[in-house]
Amino acid sequence: MGSSFYVTADQEHVGPWTFTGEQVEESVRRHWPDAIMSSAFEDFLEIEAEIAPGQRAELSFNHRHRAFSFEDREPLSAPLTVIYEVLRDLAPEVPVVRWIDYDAELTRMNLNDGLQGFTRGLA
């Protein structure tokens, strides 16, 4: 079983994101109209999007905990691209942190440095 990454607002400093799962879905559809999304699991929005030819992103948005998650599987840049675009649409000024499930050490991510800066250290 592999590890998972989590991305959320820096809740220690600003609290959780205020956007809804429906807003996440609308944002994803604006960027990737052919994305497949499902809320079959009660508290999760499952997202699959082809962000570039042959490059698929698979990730979840947890409605209750207001966090994105994705498996530690290459290319990590694919789910991070989706998260980056959604956050630029819905919460561009909110500080963001990430962690991996086995150590839960929070690492800041910066939306202001563009996609490459946002994915630095992971992708």
Rank of each mutant, 00 (worst) to 15 (best):
G114F: 09
V7L: 07
W17L: 15
D89G: 08
L111R: 05
P75M: 03
V82C: 02
T18N: 11
R73V: 08
R108L: 13
Q11Y: 09
S39K: 14
Y102G: 04
F5I: 04
D10V: 12
Y102R: 13
N110Y: 13
F68D: 11
E50D: 05
F118C: 05
D43A: 13
V97G: 00
F68N: 02
F41S: 15
S3T: 09
F44R: 11
D34F: 08
R120A: 15
G117K: 05
I83E: 05
L87Y: 07
S77M: 10
F19K: 10
F118G: 01
G117V: 01
A104C: 11
A123D: 12
G117Q: 10
D101M: 03
V96P: 07
N62D: 15
V28D: 01
P53W: 11
T20G: 03
R108H: 12
V7F: 12
M37G: 00
N112P: 01
T119A: 15
F44C: 06
F19P: 02
M37A: 00
D72S: 06
A57Q: 03
E48G: 07
V97Y: 00
D89V: 10
V86Y: 03
P33T: 02
M37C: 15
R120W: 06
A52R: 12
G117S: 00
A91K: 07
I100V: 06
F70D: 01
S27M: 03
D72N: 10
Q116H: 11
D101H: 00
W17P: 02
L76F: 08
P75E: 03
S3E: 06
V94R: 13
E42P: 07
W32S: 06
R29G: 03
A78Q: 01
A35E: 05
L80M: 08
E58N: 14
V96N: 02
S4D: 14
I51D: 08
T119S: 15
N112Q: 15
D113L: 13
S38K: 05
I51F: 10
H31P: 03
I100F: 02
R30T: 03
R29Q: 07
H65Y: 15
Q11S: 13
T8I: 07
L106N: 07
S39C: 09
R30W: 04
L45G: 02
E93Q: 15
A91E: 08
L45Q: 04
W99K: 01
G121N: 00
A78D: 07
H63K: 14
D34I: 00
T20H: 05
S27G: 00
L87D: 05
P16N: 06
E50Q: 12
S77W: 04
E22C: 09
A123R: 07
A67S: 15
L59E: 01
L45C: 04
L111E: 00
R29K: 12
V97R: 00
N62S: 14
S77K: 09
Y84D: 00
P53T: 02
Y84L: 02
S3N: 14
R88Q: 10
W17Q: 12
L106I: 04
E85N: 13
N110A: 14
M1Y: 08
V82M: 08
M109D: 09
V94S: 08
A67I: 08
Y6W: 12
P79Y: 08
D101I: 02
Y102V: 07
S38N: 11
A49F: 01
A9M: 11
Q55Y: 13
